[in-house]
Design a protein around this nucleic acid. Sequence first.
DNA 1: TAGTGGTCTAGACCACGCA
DNA 2: GCGTGGTCTAGACCACTAA
Lengths: 243, 243
Amino acid sequence: MKIKEKTVSLSTQAKKKILEYIQEKELKGDDQLPPEAVLMESMGVSRHTVREALALLEQERIIYKIQGKGTFVSIPPVPIEGGLEKLESITRMIENAGYEPGTRWLSIAEVSPTQDMVEKLALKPGETVVTFTRLRTASGRVAAYCVDSVRRSAISGPVPLEVTEESMFEYLEEHCQLYPAYAVAEIVPTLTDQRMMLDAGMQKNQLLLLLHQIHYDRQREPLIYSMDYFNPELFKFRVNRMK
Amino acid sequence: MKIKEKTVSLSTQAKKKILEYIQEKELKGDDQLPPEAVLMESMGVSRHTVREALALLEQERIIYKIQGKGTFVSIPPVPIEGGLEKLESITRMIENAGYEPGTRWLSIAEVSPTQDMVEKLALKPGETVVTFTRLRTASGRVAAYCVDSVRRSAISGPVPLEVTEESMFEYLEEHCQLYPAYAVAEIVPTLTDQRMMLDAGMQKNQLLLLLHQIHYDRQREPLIYSMDYFNPELFKFRVNRMK
DNA sequence: TAGTGGTCTAGACCACGCA
DNA sequence: GCGTGGTCTAGACCACTAA
């Protein structure tokens, strides 16, 4: 049996070659790359393809261009780390921070939506939601208190008693055919509330960062309403801001 | 005297035409746009140009594409509001929130940098920084406590006694030829500290959102080290997260 | 004026979704 | 199999920078 061949586009290959070139020549910040015409020839591809490769590198801030002057290597020539603007599962966030992700399930229940949920998820009158409440841990320490809700109709069959997937995204993709593509997150500084203190044994008045998110699919359909309370002692939240 | 003619690219014109088409036909969410071949013909441009126009619209999430099916209008067909990932001056943020921006200057002083500043701004040994401390107000209410530092050598002449520009960015661009292009922001939930309570008359233990930012120019040179403490009662901090 | 990146054209073939 | 968007080529002219 053959594994599906992934054909890599020429522009992606070209991008890789340019990166290797930077490595080989040990180019540092503000060093100039060869002009597009030279890259075309040396890689045997068209200018369009070269420019696509350069566009990818520019997006990752590995290079920058100045019209009339040339293309240059950014300083330092390593990509900056991803920030919050990149949508990732909490599992991945915990892994990226260098911890071992864990989950303690607190409850899965079908409940009436709040007014805010009705609006944000565009629920029909009388429609209920299923709410998943979990405590996420990072190498054993309390990392986040997560409350995620999806419309009842998204889940076929009875409300599950347990979910084995570590990541909520994985569960929703595999069992509900929900494919979140982007999210709008509101960031709110907050303190532990009564419920969390009981559920998770957290301290009173501990500072938390609430990520109040609505996840949407490619067609901008709202899928998930989530309230994730993060422990700021374990996570740094970064955002890369561009003009 | 003639004002500089701004030639608008064909792809930008094409983008505008497509937007007008959506308006005219009153296309709603998930409605299909004409295929690229038709757009080429009706607008009299090449496929490349059409695709550039569509790429711009896709970036703004006004449309989405599915290979093999077509191009569709997003629901709702309005661009989502900008979030934190878009770098803006605090002045603009206050204006966008619908308030009247104001500034109370607290101090401008040449000081020794902290160790963190030396690292983040890549300061030479012995180099000092100039720190601007301001209280920003929104229609009279306390909006943010801002502490911005730049390397001493960036400011020609003596340390200014006052700055008239409302926006720090404007001041730095016009007087120091510093052009911030992007910033890396760390988001930290925090409480009012002693200094702020004295300076700004804030309450003890009031929740704040600290945006700890380093601003860089196009060449990735660090320019500004800033610590902005925002009043979360006045601002919602949004981040648009993409997969 | 020479050299660079920015925009645009015309045409080709490929990969995917669907009937 | 057809129609869609995705990728790629070859070639042209424009706009900006610096000598």
